[in-house]
Computed example of a mutant assay.
Amino acid sequence: MIHPIVAIGDPVLKARAKNLPADLPAAELQQLIADMLETMYFAHGVGLAAPQIGKSVRLFVIDSTPMVELDEEDIAEGVEAEPAIKRAFLNPVMVSETGEKWGFEEGCLSIPGVRELVQRCPDIVLRYEDENRQVHEEGFSGMNARIIQHEYDHLEGVLFTDKLSSFKKQLLKGKLARIGKGDVAHDYRMKFASAGRR
């Protein structure tokens, strides 16, 4: 089932999400993961966190394929492809973020029409449960690490716009307020808290 994506301005996006309970029925969990992937693909995203569909639980899904595919120029220059990741991450804990920060223009399904340069560490170690509730501790780098950090931030109540300079935040203030009221073009279902409509 495709869920509406919650827009900036909804309190669920600013709250720290709670752990998924250990006794959550497997069928219910699998359905939630499937719904999140379907919603993400419908909106042409590469990641989606549960708070973005109004559920304040520590779960996100990613499929980094579109972000790590090489174009013809990269291939000609001998650039090696980064392995794509399609996975659900349950109850994640960020163990470490290391390396010299690098900038990349990020966007967010909850903030359509806004893209800004965000600095993030290139290497991370994440402890998480997979969809079968098995625990892993794994390192990620490059674009995969960036996508994971972006989605992990959602579980902490942090949006990518929170990471911008005070000057940039001030410039975007009016636009973000309009998005929160539903005054924005979008081609997927959305839920606007202050507008009370979808």
Results as ranks from 00 to 15, higher is better:
Met1Ile: 09
Met1Asp: 12
Pro4Ser: 10
Ala7Trp: 00
Ile8Lys: 02
Gly9Val: 07
Asp10Glu: 06
Pro11Ile: 10
Pro11Cys: 09
Lys14Ser: 06
Leu20Tyr: 06
Pro21Asn: 09
Ala22Asn: 09
Ala22Gly: 01
Pro25Phe: 08
Gln31Phe: 00
Leu32Ile: 11
Ile33Ser: 13
Ile33Phe: 07
Ala34Asn: 04
Asp35Lys: 08
Asp35Glu: 05
Met36Glu: 08
Leu37His: 12
Phe42Ile: 03
Ala43His: 13
His44Leu: 07
His44Cys: 08
Gly45Leu: 01
Val46Tyr: 03
Gly47Thr: 00
Gly47Ile: 00
Ala49Gly: 14
Ala50Phe: 06
Ala50Gln: 12
Pro51Arg: 08
Gly54Lys: 11
Gly54Asp: 11
Lys55Leu: 15
Ser56His: 06
Arg58Glu: 03
Arg58His: 06
Arg58Thr: 07
Leu59Glu: 10
Phe60His: 07
Asp63Glu: 02
Thr65Met: 12
Met67Asn: 11
Met67Trp: 03
Leu70Asn: 03
Asp71Ala: 01
Asp71Pro: 04
Ala76Cys: 03
Ala76Met: 05
Ala76Ser: 10
Glu80Asp: 07
Glu82Ser: 08
Glu82Met: 05
Ile85Trp: 00
Arg87Ala: 15
Ala88Gly: 15
Phe89Lys: 11
Leu90Asn: 12
Pro92Val: 08
Val93Leu: 05
Met94Thr: 03
Val95Tyr: 12
Ser96Leu: 07
Thr98Arg: 15
Gly99Ile: 12
Glu100Thr: 14
Lys101Gln: 12
Trp102Cys: 07
Phe104Ile: 11
Glu105Gly: 07
Glu106Gln: 14
Glu106Val: 11
Gly107Ala: 05
Pro112Ala: 08
Gly113Leu: 10
Val114His: 08
Arg115Lys: 14
Arg115Pro: 02
Glu116Asp: 05
Glu116Ala: 14
Leu117Trp: 04
Asp123Phe: 01
Asp123Glu: 09
Asp123Leu: 06
Ile124Phe: 10
Arg127Lys: 15
Asp130Leu: 05
Asp130Trp: 05
Glu131Val: 04
Gln134Glu: 06
Val135Asp: 04
His136Trp: 15
Gly139Met: 08
Gly139Thr: 10
Phe140Ser: 10
Gly142Thr: 00
Met143Asp: 00
Met143Trp: 03
Ala145Gln: 04
Ile147Gln: 03
Ile148Gly: 09
Ile148Cys: 05
His150Lys: 09
His150Trp: 01
His150Met: 07
His154Gln: 10
Leu159Ala: 09
Leu159His: 09
Leu159Lys: 12
Phe160Trp: 01
Thr161Phe: 00
Thr161Ser: 01
Lys163Cys: 02
Leu164Asn: 13
Ser166Ala: 15
Ser166Phe: 03
Ser166Gly: 09
Ser166Ile: 06
Phe167Ile: 14
Lys168Gln: 04
Lys169Tyr: 13
Lys169Trp: 13
Gln170Lys: 15
Gln170Tyr: 06
Leu171Phe: 13
Lys173Trp: 02
Gly174Ile: 02
Ala177Phe: 01
Arg178Lys: 15
Ile179Asp: 00
Gly180Leu: 12
Lys181Arg: 15
Val184Ser: 11
His186Ala: 14
Ala195Trp: 06
Arg198Leu: 13
